[in-house]
Design a protein around this nucleic acid. Structure first.
Lengths: 120, 120
DNA sequence: TTAGTACTTAGATGGCTGTCAAGCTAGACG
DNA sequence: CGTCTAGCTTGACAGCCATCTAAGTACTAA
């Protein structure tokens, strides 16, 4: 099962018990967000001008080696939370707002209505 | 800094870069949700009749010892996601929807407006 | 009080994970 | 070509974590 797909079809947590399969996929996404460095990376990328950020912009913020930042970006990428693209020398990352919105919807009841409102 | 407090005052991820302090507190909550068993526990409790569930109801669902379930419930409790109360022989847990709503708001832009709408 | 049920805590253990150093690949520029 | 910069991968290691067994606590019932 694809990750974003799994998240997309999950009902709100309060609506019905999560299936074992869905819980595994959902947990993978939350686990990816369960690290301070990765959360900051996510918000740095999301809030950066143009909606994207170069890895060099991100590395300077932390007191960590490039290898570690690269590792965290990979975790976020494999969770479907960000996507990366090489343009010349640099690699740019951007968040995937659709997945964030779906995650957000899973956390609160009545999300279907709210999602429709957001789509408008 | 209190956990729920930290989550409450976090702006949406896309609005501005998360501070190092906020990211640590937020990550603790997401980390608690980053496990399939804990996610299922959360949804079992949230979707249970009356908004609360006894530990014995939860233990039967999984192929795990009571000690392990107890451990996961403790993690969820320390993250501020659930609260437990003993009534007689049994212990009942319920979710704290306020924290879930705030978490949800952190994930999407324009949450302040949407929160106001939800509150009505 | 004794026995029994419902959790919780403590300790142990195997597996996972965040981090770094070192090495590697991809592109830019002579 | 060679060299420089940006980023990724690998391998290693210390610390964390999910799980179990065994023991402890809290309440009920006879």
């Amino acid at each position: 099962m694809d990750l974003s797909e799994a998240v997309a079809c999950c009902s709100p947590l309060v609506a019905e018990p999560l299936s074992a399969e869905h819980s595994v996929e959902l947990a993978r996404v939350f686990k990816a967000m369960g690290d301070p460095v990765r959360l900051r990376l996510l918000s740095l990328i999301a809030s950066h001008a143009g909606g994207e950020a170069c890895v060099c912009d991100l590395t300077d913020v932390f007191d960590l080696t490039g290898a570690t930042i690269s590792h965290h970006l990979k975790v976020l990428r494999e969770a479907g939370l960000i996507s990366g693209e090489r343009r010349g020398t640099w690699v740019y990352y951007r968040v995937r707002p659709d997945l964030l919105a779906r995650l957000s919807a899973v956390l609160v009841p009545g999300s279907a209505i709210r999602d429709a409102a957001v789509a408008r």
